[in-house]
């Protein structure tokens, strides 16, 4: 990188003194960038989950483990329940639409999506003996979500074989 200045003052003392070219020492800058890169890469790989919640979902804080896992993800916000990033049910102020929740607390719309996901897992497991159906479910729910909505989501998942819930929280131990 070289800059041309009117004056003949130089920072580097390594270049021809008469040309008026100024050479910035960017080796130090490269070092700094390398350090930032290493720092970011380390932070990037040490996250517990491979996902980030949506901007409108504020997770609660709790002491949590930092295990890394991949599983089906459910996100509950004020306006919708998303499964693997796709809207599965609409909510109004965290409440399911009238008629969507049946007597046992299961949401009809969520039940359909969970069923499809489960069938997909079963088909993969059938075709590949090394793969087993996964009962784990990562739940990312807004901290203001009422327990009735949490219950409906978990009940819809449980009747389709997802019974090992992993609740995503902001790790307050850090």
């Amino acid at each position: 990188m070289s800059l041309r200045f009117g004056k003949k003052r130089r920072f580097g003392m390594r270049h021809k003194p008469a040309s008026g070219e100024l050479s910035l020492n960017i080796t130090a800058m490269a070092d700094i960038f390398m350090l930032i890169l290493v720092f970011l890469l380390k932070g990037y790989t040490s996250g517990a989950l491979g996902v980030s919640p949506s901007a409108d979902v504020k997770l609660p804080a709790a002491f949590a483990s930092k295990e890394h896992l991949e599983a089906l993800k459910v996100e509950i916000s004020k306006t919708a329940v998303q499964i693997e990033g796709k809207a599965a049910a609409s909510l109004a102020e965290f409440k399911f639409a009238a008629g969507d929740v049946v007597e046992n607390g299961v949401s009809k719309s969520l039940d359909g999506v969970f069923k499809v996901e489960r069938q997909r897992q079963m088909l993969i497991a059938k075709a590949n003996e090394d793969v087993k159906p996964d009962a784990r479910l990562i739940v990312m729910a807004d901290k203001g979500t009422p327990y009735s909505t949490i219950k409906s989501v978990l009940a819809s998942a449980a009747v389709n074989g997802y019974t090992d819930f992993k609740l995503a929280v902001i790790d307050s131990s850090q």
Binding site: Y44, L154, A158, T163
Partner: peptide, 20 residues
Amino acid sequence: LLASSSFLAIGIVDAGVAAG
């Protein structure tokens, strides 16, 4: 990396279900 990284330390709490 800055654009794609999350600065929230997300952890996991295990929970089962007592019915269903």
